[in-house]
Design a protein around this nucleic acid. Structure first.
Lengths: 215, 215, 215, 215
DNA sequence: GATGAATGAGGCTTCATTCAT
DNA sequence: GATGAATGAAGCCTCATTCAT
């Protein structure tokens, strides 16, 4: 009757399920997670999930896709019209900032995506390909501009950088690493992943930037 | 009952089970793998596995530990008494060579280890800690020797480098990436992961090596 | 809301649902058939079915009843005011002709009716009782008239004849039997069920007709 | 330890499951029957059933096959080396005797077999083909011997006779018919199916036997 | 009346683990 | 120690039915 009960009815039930799934998958891992848990977290009946997703697998894939789309679009926005060197800085910082702001998403992308690539070899994961292409494009642009050394193929560089970021995200998400202070023996405390961005950049950049050292 | 040279009967049943498990886990992934499949691959009865391992989880952990021990000892042997810079080269090359020589092991370490860190938060994985410590030690030694820039904490560098190597291993194991040539449209072919070692080294090293900016 | 000529909107929604159900039940069988499929076939919403039928079971029963009523009335029309011997001929021929003309109906009556008698022991199926009574009546009349041997109770004869017809219908509907020609090795082709009527009649009749053993 | 605890351990667990399934399917019908019920009836765990049968469907098919084999072999034994006319008598009487002795089996064969032929069109049911072939062979032999009229193809006669027997079995199994006495209004009482054999024979035989009526 | 999204009970099946031999 | 048949808990998914619109 009321036209705006929408907010609590089903403004986007599909989105609610996706978010719930992301949290549950992050909490328990995909395999240990039960569809019923996702349903409860989303506040819907078990069967409702199957109105929006074909299977539990499909649900996982959809979580990936929605999240990677967001990540990609935020990265695109952040790197905007900058010069390659600035783009790289922005890319790395933004990515790790997103990890920091959405730990559940990070956990799923970091841990479950890897699993799934294995099981679902048929699943191409176009969003992740986009991610790598964007990063590779930045590198290639920098190489073309003469800002970056071009001894290494840009897409290899992209993958290597992604490896760093992914590992940083994993370590942070699992809360094991204790980068920075922390007296020895202290329980591992989450390090500041946003600050870690600059370390990663330092490692990479100093290598990529051509040093006009001159002889 | 039979006593005659037990040593011949089960030269090492435990080892056979571990190898079988590694192959099966690599082939199907830990969750999809069935204990019965491992038993069949090992040529033992299902129940026999439980004489050597407490549970399927324990089996996975044991696979990790045995393999990481081997990896660590081979890395230790390879890096031997070299200077830090040479140690780093040897470390990276040896690691990727091992990935190349034991793809099943690589698949398990690359994909399943990550999962397991999540599920078995209680499982400290000391071997992996050793791995990181070894790599960190090389970096720290290089920093102390003045060979490497010390702006980044050595253990952070270690993790970043591991991230690169891990991603390289993953891409190679899944056979998706097509680093190197390959006519466009060509089906992705496994790139030469051993050669990729030098790319990773180039990226990292050039950044770590202090540049004597002038003569 | 719309009132304009309701008769046009739903000329007979109930009938449409029944026809759709008959086709769907014939196609998939009652248990495998989904109410949603029936709804789609009928061009109505799932819920609409429950405005006309109490349950899926009720829908099946209604299909039976509507169809058996038709069958019975057509049989009654066909047997009309004939002499018993002619009535029997007409009954058998008409029944098998109906099977031929409405295979979906035949499939449901032949296969599902049998199931349902089991599950719905409470469901008396009065139409089928009528069917048997009509056939039994013809036999009894023939016996009374001295045309048929009366060694066997008429209702037993009726059931035996029905058994023949039912089996003929089943074999035809499932398309398995290959009565008539067909080179050996030939894929079973539907036999001519209408012609089969005369075989059934021959078998029965020659037995029922009292033989005047001599002139 | 004891060698003969066999009787209660697992003399033939597969057979026990088949018998249990037959009873449960007869009692509830295949679709309404739960695998768990079969397991309980058989005195095994749910999972045990899947050690012997691939699926619930496979269980049903196996019930058919085991039972039809028995039926066929008993029919073969009973019809032995008789003359065709005697074989037919023996066939019909034996079949209905079996129905009488094993009502659960009869219920499954009569009701579920029909369903299943529909769902499992791929399932050829060779035993039932044998059954029909045996009956057809008897008829054909009688026709060759000049005992039976050969106006109707023997396999058609076989099917017609089977139809009668099947219907008789069904009526008896469902306990609806009230052949024989029973005051009107009396609750339907199972008729004597063994005696009914002679009615069926009378109907058929008198038709099949060539009457040397002379001109 | 009509709709169709939502419900949630319930069943088939899998598979890690046990234990009698 | 070794076996492998048996166990039974547990989860994904289906689908008849409901009810707010």
């Amino acid at each position: 009757m009321t036209v705006h009960s929408a907010a609590e009815k089903a403004p986007d039930k599909r989105a609610r399920i996706l978010s719930a799934a992301e949290r549950i998958f992050a909490r328990h891992g995909f395999f240990a997670a039960k569809v019923a848990d996702v349903a409860k977290e989303a506040g819907v009946a078990d069967g409702t999930i199957y109105l929006y997703f074909k299977s539990k697998d499909d649900l996982l894939i959809s979580v990936f896709e929605r999240r990677m789309e967001q990540v990609n679009s935020q990265l695109r926005a952040a790197t905007g019209k900058l010069a390659p060197k600035q783009q790289l800085v922005a890319f790395v910082r933004t990515y790790l900032q997103l990890v920091h702001d959405e730990p559940a998403a990070a956990e799923v992308l970091t841990i479950e995506l890897r699993q799934s690539s294995k099981f679902m070899k048929e699943y191409a994961n176009p969003q992740f390909a986009d991610f790598l292409r964007m990063l590779g494009g930045i590198i290639a642009a920098g190489q073309d501009a003469g800002d970056f050394d071009d001894a290494i193929p840009s897409h290899v560089v992209a993958r290597l950088i992604f490896g760093m970021l992914d590992e940083l995200a994993l370590a942070w998400v699992l809360g094991r690493a204790n980068f920075g202070a922390g007296a020895p023996g202290t329980r591992p405390k989450k390090f500041d992943i946003v600050r870690a961005a600059d370390w990663a950049l330092a490692l990479v950049t100093t290598g990529l930037v051509r040093k006009e050292t001159s002889p």
